[in-house]
Design a protein around this nucleic acid. Structure first.
Length: 294
DNA sequence: CTCCAGGAACGAC
DNA sequence: GTCGTTCCTGGA
């Protein structure tokens, strides 16, 4: 295995609790990292990268300029300690921060993020991963890395030129026309990247013009793909978690809870959402990705 | 076999 | 604005 030739395997010395790859890559914010040789292979800004947790940090293998891009991808410059320390008076968030120490928000590239979350509509992580994998193998850019072939997320142009019938053959069902139309809009000049510099609400309104993108999916793209860290996505599980821990089981609408989260947790609300979602599901949902793994 | 999931769109009120 | 329905598919 190429990994045994350690010559290009960078060691990134960071505190053990600074970044936990398993929590970060498997909690449902990204869907395309594959397990390999004790680590994970995925794409960071269109380049294949291998990362592996080590006792003191993580090791890294990939193209030139990889460290700065990986640092940005895992948001290692965000003051996670300060962010979690601000939750000290919140019993639930304090426990969440302690339980999942090292969990971080990821800053994906916007288009891949959109594709993933459009496919997430009324779906689940394994199914999203399967659909994305089939899609990528069919029309994503093929890259040889570590002696194997890997496929990037298909470009907007590649997706927009597929027939709906072909798209549906990847098992994505009613999401196929959504994806195709989003791809077409982007190839026609709809700029996702420009939304990063707009105010949160304006960027959200613009995203929701696209077919298949409602409030929840928009918030996910804003948070995970466009750097709007005040976004507070509320899906069915987040709704259950918040109602259970903060509202004595009383029913609230998704819109109410999303705004409640933004107001309560401020500019870093997205981190609060990430921790509450991951921790709350681990507590309440038998199908949490981390059931039995802690 | 039946049932239901990590939503959005659309029409009816 | 809010409610009820429908939408593919895979796994329980």
């Amino acid at each position: 295995m190429i990994l045994e030739t350690q010559d290009s395997l960078s060691q990134v010395p960071i505190p053990p609790s600074f970044l936990r790859l398993d929590y970060t890559l498997k909690c449902g914010q990204v869907f395309r990292w594959e397990n390999l040789n004790g680590g994970y292979v995925g794409f960071v800004n269109f380049s294949p990268v291998y990362v592996r947790q080590e006792v003191n940090g993580f090791s890294l293998l990939g193209n030139a300029d990889r460290l700065s891009k990986v640092t940005s991808y895992f948001r290692l410059d965000d003051p996670l300690d300060d962010i979690t320390r601000a939750w000290k008076d919140d019993r639930i968030l304090s426990e969440a921060a302690k339980t999942f120490r090292g969990l971080r928000l990821i800053h994906q590239e916007a288009w891949s993020c959109l594709v993933g979350f459009v496919l997430s509509i009324m779906s689940n992580i394994p199914k999203i991963e399967t659909g994305l994998g089939k899609l990528a193998r069919h029309c994503g850019e093929r890259v040889r890395f570590l002696g194997s072939l890997f496929y990037a997320t298909p470009s907007p142009k590649a997706l927009s030129s597929l027939r709906e019938k072909t798209l549906r053959s990847f098992g994505i069902g009613f999401r196929a026309p959504y994806l195709k139309e989003c791809a077409r809009e982007v190839t026609r000049g709809f700029s996702l990247e420009e939304l990063a510099s707009l105010p949160y609400l304006e960027a959200k309104r613009a995203l929701m013009e696209l077919p298949g993108i409602g409030e929840k999916v928009a918030d996910c793209i804003l948070l995970h793909g466009l750097g709007h860290l005040e976004a507070f996505p509320v899906d069915v599980w987040m709704k259950r978690v918040l109602e259970h821990y903060y509202f004595k089981g009383e029913e609230k609408t998704e819109r109410y809870l999303s705004e409640w989260g933004r107001n309560k947790f401020g500019p870093w609300a997205g981190y609060a959402e990430l921790y509450l979602y991951t921790f709350g599901r681990w507590k309440l949902d038998p199908r949490s990705p981390f059931r039995g793994k802690r």
